[in-house]
Amino acid sequence: MSFFAQLSQWLADPNRWSWTDPAGIPFRTVQHLWFSALALAISIVLTVPLAVCLGHYRRGQFLASSAVNIGRAIPSFGLIILFWFLASRWGANTDFWPLLLALVALALPPLFTNTYAGVVQVEQEVVDAARGTGYREWQIMLRVELPLSSPVIVAAARVAFLQLIATVAIGAIVNDGGGLGRYIVDGFALGEQGHGEIFGGGLAVVILALVCEGLFALLTKLATPRGLALQQARRDS
Rank of each mutant, 00 (worst) to 15 (best):
L215F: 04
V127L: 03
Q9V: 11
V104S: 08
N15P: 02
S18Q: 11
A156T: 01
Y135H: 09
G134V: 09
A102Y: 13
W138P: 07
F85I: 06
I198R: 01
P110S: 02
V206I: 09
L146M: 05
S43D: 05
A172Q: 09
D236G: 05
P22H: 08
I81P: 14
L99E: 15
H32G: 00
P147T: 01
V154R: 05
L142Y: 14
Y116S: 03
C53P: 09
E192M: 14
L108C: 11
W34Y: 11
T113L: 06
W17C: 08
A67V: 02
R158W: 06
L148D: 01
I74S: 01
L111G: 00
Y57S: 07
Y183T: 15
T224L: 01
A229G: 02
W138N: 14
A37Y: 07
A67F: 01
P49C: 01
E123I: 00
V152W: 03
V144P: 08
L101R: 11
I173D: 12
I198T: 01
V30H: 12
L190S: 10
P98A: 14
S65A: 01
L230Y: 10
R89T: 08
L148T: 05
A172H: 11
I153F: 06
L7Y: 12
T220A: 05
V104C: 11
W19P: 06
I184G: 11
I74A: 03
Q139C: 13
L86Y: 13
A102T: 15
S66Q: 08
I25N: 10
T113E: 12
L222R: 13
T113Q: 15
L101C: 06
V211C: 04
G196T: 05
P151R: 13
L222A: 07
F3S: 05
L219C: 07
